[in-house]
Amino acid sequence: MFGFLLRRVAFLAPTFVGITVVAFGFIRILPGDPVLLMAGERGLTPERHAELLHQLGFDRPIWQQYLTYLGNLLQGDLGTSIITKNPVLGEFLTLFPATVELSLCAIFLAVALGVPAGVIAAVRRGSLLEQAMMGTALVGYSMPIFWWGLLLIILFSGILHWTPVSGRISLIYFFEPVTGFMLIDALLSGQEGAFGSALSHLILPSIVLATIPLAVIARQTRSAMLEVLGEDYIRTARAKGLSPLRVIGLHALRNALIPVITTIGLQVGVLLAGAILTETIFSWPGVGKWMVDSIFRRDYPAVQGGLLLIAGVVMVVNLVVDLLYGLINPRIRHQ
């Protein structure tokens, strides 16, 4: 197992270097530069434009800029946002807990509903229930997130008044954050009703963000279960007289979970991409919205740093998934 872990970690280093190149090059491929965008219709003289580019160091050859960036990176310096003038790492760490909190809730929702739905659909194959569930999953998978979010807001917040429209907690609560996770901070604050308010603010964005992963997980679970249910060992288990619950829960599901866990791991990338839209609709102060703003403003250091950190998170999650995979399937860790 240790060797397996080492091999996986060794793979990360070149991937990480590759990501620095992509993160650095990506934003520079886009036409336009931050100085022009800052000036807008007002415009700048060519001399002033050159002066400002020089101040920011963007007039140097690209390879020099890259080497400086890499050098700073090795010292843990991700640079300073050219718009807000704040350190990029600080901004990311300020916003990241909000994205993690939302993503965790969404993935929890997606797994808690998606796996049972997939199992039921597989077990009740051909039934009306299966068709309804898989039809719903297909609709969920194809749902345009922005439209879906607005629809939920209009129905549950606008018409029924069951949930708040947007934000992370009601504005009447005001406390200094400790962890950055609103649910935990609300509890720590000791203010009456704060936790409930934070929880109610999580409901709609979690549903919206969970919609696509939920559909994917349900469909994946169903197909994996169908495959496993046809195996000989399942027939044997049934022939032994085990209860259907034991056959499905212990024998079938455990084996079917292997591809499902891979799918769940891959959904982390999907979640972070979905978070961009979800965070925008629900005014959720996370890294998704921050990245979009930074791209529009050509805030090179923020985009580079953000991409790198997000890619790092996805890489770590994939590593964890690989390890979990090894735990569940002994054949993998012995390869």
Binding site: L150, I153, I154, S157, G158, H161, P164, V165, S166, G167, L171, T280, I281, F282, S283, P285, K289
Partner: peptide
């Protein structure tokens, strides 16, 4: 200032009294 970038969501917040 409750920062709300989407115009439709701002409108819902206004209507909901937020």
């Amino acid at each position: 200032f409750a920062i709300t970038t989407d115009a439709a969501v701002r409108q819902q917040k206004l209507l909901a009294g937020e």
